[in-house]
């Protein structure tokens, strides 16, 4: 209860501070607005728990921090960058694309390309042999094939 009161005080303070600059009163960001940002962030001390569902007291403070920043007019990206700068990259849902972290994205891509290369090579040889021994395909064959396959598999 004391915490909540404190938050209310802070938000109120922020609002008062802004009232002089902006004429229109900023509404307190709702829980949903806070969660929309929090769900893209991870709790800095837990193991893989998104911030919007993290039940600890510390996470509650971080969510309140998001609320303060939102109230101060920060954008989603700014808040995320702030969290990364304060609490490390592990608060982001995926590693930021820079420096060494490019490996996180490039290695799976490279592996996939490698796989595609192998598959391509197999298909290429298959095609060559196909043109070498092209067989006419009649549609009636399809039925025979199905039945033959059925018989084979029934064994």
């Amino acid at each position: 209860m004391k915490k909540l009161l404190w938050v209310v005080l802070i938000v109120w303070g922020v609002l008062l501070g802004q009232a002089e600059m902006v004429a229109a009163q900023e509404p307190t960001p709702s829980d949903d607005e806070v969660n929309a940002v929090a769900r893209q962030l991870y709790c800095p001390v837990c193991e893989n728990v998104p911030l919007d569902v993290c039940p600890t007291e510390a996470c509650k403070d971080w969510r309140e921090q998001i609320r303060e920043k939102l109230a101060a007019g920060w954008s989603e990206e700014e808040i995320k960058a702030y969290f990364a700068a304060q609490y490390g990259d592990r608060t982001l849902a995926q590693p930021p694309r820079r420096g060494f972290n490019w490996l996180a994205y490039l290695i799976p891509l490279a592996l996939m390309l490698l796989g595609a290369g192998v598959v391509g090579r197999i298909l290429w040889t298959a095609q060559r042999s196909q043109s070498a021994a092209a067989l006419p395909v009649v549609e009636e064959e399809r039925l025979a094939e199905i039945e033959a396959a059925l018989r084979r598999q029934g064994e």
Partner: peptide, 16 residues
């Protein structure tokens, strides 16, 4: 790997 090389922990979450 990231922790070993850069010393920074990272999270691989749903977006990745």
């Amino acid at each position: 790997l990231s922790e070993l090389v850069t010393g920074q922990k990272v999270t691989m979450g749903p977006p990745f």
